[in-house]
């Protein structure tokens, strides 16, 4: 228990150095947390016409998921390869069986790399896209225009993103697959292990609840990725310069929330 407390304190302390303000000011965090949940309530109330939402959802799927395929595939494949190479190079003891390479690759890709670290990368890509597009609408009074017309602007802007991000687990599944493929390619083509040993490792000690754990995390992160950057965009004040600043803040906080939730979920599910 003491360990958890120490970790929480270290987290809180390090958070202040990640944020722009280098002093500890917990009220801001609590206030923002309250506003965040108030925002979520408005996102899900008084939905705009389904006909309009449908088009928006399709557009967001393209912007958020489709346009992220490339970078997720690229990073997963090469990081998978590197994980395998590192593991192989560190196992030069002849008593450790070679299939551990495949095993280690599978575990690190499925449990952490694909769900968590790809999500941090997405906090940069998808997150800054969401913050800057909503923030620009705020600065140029487009959000005011929606409100004046009587449109629930939070529902209009954020709800389609949450729905579109429900496809995020597929993106992560692709990342998992390509990560392992990258590992296999690096291991087998690089002559570090045989294909048989690698596949034996992949199938070794396979636990379905590990997959469940990975995808529960992914679903939670997808919600965070859609809503936290939206929060920083929607409630920003100022002009174009502040849009850039808001994107940075959003990236920092989305990452922090993902890391903290990763810690909590891991404790809850595997701990």
């Amino acid at each position: 228990m003491i360990i958890i407390k120490v970790i929480v304190i270290i987290l809180l302390l390090s958070i202040q150095f990640l944020d722009d303000k280098p002093y500890f000011y917990p009220m801001i965090y609590i206030e923002n947390l309250g506003r965040y949940f108030a925002m979520l309530r408005k996102v899900f109330s008084k939905p705009v016409k389904w006909l309009i939402l449908k088009d928006l959802i399709l557009k967001e799927m393209n912007d958020l998921i489709n346009n992220s395929l490339g970078i997720v595939a690229f990073i997963s494949f090469f990081v998978g390869g590197v994980v395998t190479i590192q593991t192989a190079l560190n196992i030069d003891n002849p008593f450790i069986p070679k299939y551990l390479i495949g095993f280690a690759t599978r575990q690190s890709i499925i449990l952490e790399f694909a769900p968590t670290f790809v999500s941090i990368i997405m906090a940069g890509k998808v997150g800054s896209f969401i913050t800057s597009s909503i923030g620009t609408m705020r600065v140029t009074e487009q959000i005011d225009a929606l409100d004046v017309m009587g449109v629930n602007s939070l529902n209009y802007l954020v709800f389609p993103k949450i729905v579109a991000m429900s496809l995020y687990p597929f993106l992560i599944a692709i990342g998992m697959f390509l990560g392992i493929l990258g590992g296999w390619t690096a291991g087998v083509v690089g002559g570090l292990t045989s294909s048989e040993a690698f596949t034996t490792g992949l199938q070794m000690d396979f636990k379905t609840y590990h997959i469940a754990y990975a995808f529960i995390k992914t679903v939670v992160f997808s919600f965070v990725l859609a809503t936290v950057p939206a929060f920083y965009g929607y409630y920003m004040k100022g002009g174009a310069l502040e849009v850039g600043r808001a994107s940075t803040t959003a990236f920092v906080w989305t990452s922090i929330v993902i890391i903290v939730l990763n810690f909590i979920l891991t404790q809850l599910i595997l701990g």
Partner: peptide, 20 residues
């Protein structure tokens, strides 16, 4: 009722505020 009233309002913003 507020939402109803809002459909009867038209507003031209200082910066036009067109959806880009």
């Amino acid at each position: 009722e507020k939402r109803e009233l809002r459909t009867e309002l038209g507003m031209v913003f200082q910066g036009s505020a067109l959806f880009d």
